[in-house]
Structures are given as C-alpha cells and as structure tokens.
C-alpha cells in the first residue's frame, strides 16, 4: 500500500468532499460489521476476557489482596485490568482490518473517513463494555466487594470512552508500522495517563463513599478529556489513514 503513486488531493484531505448523507448509517454499519463478525468468531472477546481474568489473578498474588488492602487498591486493579485488556482488543480489531485488506475496502467506501473512525470507536467501546460487564461481577464475587455503585459505573463509562477514543486513533497508526503490536501500548499509555489517573481517583472516591463534591473534579476531567480527544481524533483521523 505504501508504494502507491501520490494523488493530487493528498495535500489537504479535509477539503475532499464526500457525500455526507447516511453518515450515521455508515458509522452503525461499520460497528455492526465488527460486532457481527465477532459474534461468529468470538476470538477477540474471548482473548480479552481470559486476559482480563488472568491479570486479576496475578494481582491477587502480587498485591496479596486481603481485606485491608482491597479497599485501597480495588480501583487501581480494575483500571489496570481494563487498560491491558483494552490494548489487546484495540490492537486485534485494527490488525484484522489491516491483514485482510479490509481497511482499504473501507477507505474506498464513499463515506467520510471519520465515519470509519467512529464506527471502529463504537465497536471497540462495545467490546470494552462487554469485558467490563463480565469482569465487574467476577471481581465482586471473588473479593466480596460490592461494585454495583451507579457512580462507579458512570466513571467506568466515561473512562472507557476516553481510553477507546485515543486508543482507536493510535491503534490505526500502530498497525501501519513495522513493530505494530508492540508499539500500541507504548504510544497509548503515556497519552492516556490523564484518563487513567482521573478514572482511578474517581472510582476509588465512589468506592469509599466520599461526598460528590470531592469526586467532581475528577469526573469533570474525564468529561473534558473525552470531549477533547474525540474532537482531536475526529480532526486528525484523515491524516492517519490516507494512502
């Protein structure tokens, strides 16, 4: 793909006009395609899930998760698990597109390229939510903590949105490089630090039952991060996939 001749319109891809009708439909179609193929193969979700459970298992031995430490580190353990499992999923979902030439097909489709981004974003987010929906009850049962706190669920929603927003953008960059799978976590983790810090702080605030006024700065920060990074990814995705 790299040796294609330069086309005249590559100078500023944002000015290339594409029909914008059915934008939402295109997004949903891409997301649906991913979910449908995942429903049939189940290779991505099962890998993410098993990996997430193994991470929790390892934390159990690494941190000696007894009752005393559990309260303090639960939110940290959860977010590290989500972040690791998320990277695995993000990598795989983009690698599938690249390996089977599916990405080129998507790029040829007469839709705005940001629709591809949002489609992949939605399906990656769905995978992340499914993993979280299974990990949370398992963790609750294994460690006897009640994680069904509406505040915590809100934080997990906001945090996952931010993480997947940057992750989808960076994974579409990472798959086009020589080192691909190795590169994504290296690119993603330093950029995603603010979302992880805010998510961990807000989660542990909700788990410890702090007043909302104390947690609010972190929740606000998650919202700000989500908005900014979805906007940035929307603006620069064109530059990442152009061939």
């Amino acid at each position: 793909m790299d040796d294609r001749p330069l086309t005249a319109d590559r100078k500023s891809p944002s000015t290339v006009r594409r029909p914008s009708s059915g934008y939402l439909k295109a997004i949903l179609a891409i997301a649906w395609k991913d979910l449908a193929s995942e429903l049939r193969s189940r290779e991505l979700l099962s890998a993410m899930l098993v990996f997430a459970l193994l991470v929790i298992l390892i934390f159990n031995f690494a941190l000696e998760l007894d009752v005393a430490t559990r309260g303090a580190v639960t939110s940290g353990v959860l977010w590290v698990t989500f972040a690791f499992a998320g990277t695995l999923g993000l990598n795989r979902s983009m690698a599938i597109e690249k390996d089977r030439g599916c990405l080129d097909g998507l790029l040829l489709a007469p839709v705005d390229r940001s629709a591809i981004y949002f489609g992949k974003f939605l399906s990656n987010l769905a995978f992340m939510f499914i993993v979280e929906a299974i990990v949370l009850p398992v963790y609750s049962v294994l460690y006897n903590v009640n994680l069904f706190n509406p505040g915590l669920l809100l934080v997990i929603l906001l945090g996952s949105v931010g993480y997947v927003a940057v992750g989808t953008l960076l994974s579409s960059m990472a798959v086009q490089t020589r080192t691909r799978d190795v590169l994504l976590p290296i690119l993603l983790f330093p950029v995603a630090v603010p979302v992880l810090v805010a998510a961990v702080k807000a989660s542990s605030g909700f788990l410890q039952g702090l007043a909302f006024a104390e947690i609010a700065p972190y929740v606000n920060q998650l919202i700000v991060y989500d908005v900014i990074f979805i906007a940035v990814a929307f603006m620069v995705f064109d530059y990442v996939v152009e061939e």
């Binding site: 940057v166 953008l169 960076l170 960059m173 086009q176 490089t177 690119l187 330093p190 950029v191 995603a192 630090v193 603010p194 810090v197 805010a198 972190y218 920060q221 700000v224 991060y225 900014i228 990074f229 940035v232 620069v236 530059y239 990442v240 152009e242």
Partner: peptide
C-alpha cells in the same frame, strides 16, 4: 512525518491535562 505530527499533536494536548490531573 505524518504519523509523528499527529502523535506530537495528541501528546501536546494530553500533557497539560496530565499536569492538571495530578
């Protein structure tokens, strides 16, 4: 050049938020 420009952009937005978050 394209990828590193995009990554620098993403990073330069993330760093001030990191500072605020801590």
């Amino acid at each position: 050049a394209r990828f590193s420009a995009v990554y620098t952009l993403v990073g330069s937005i993330s760093v001030p938020i990191t500072f605020l978050s801590i």
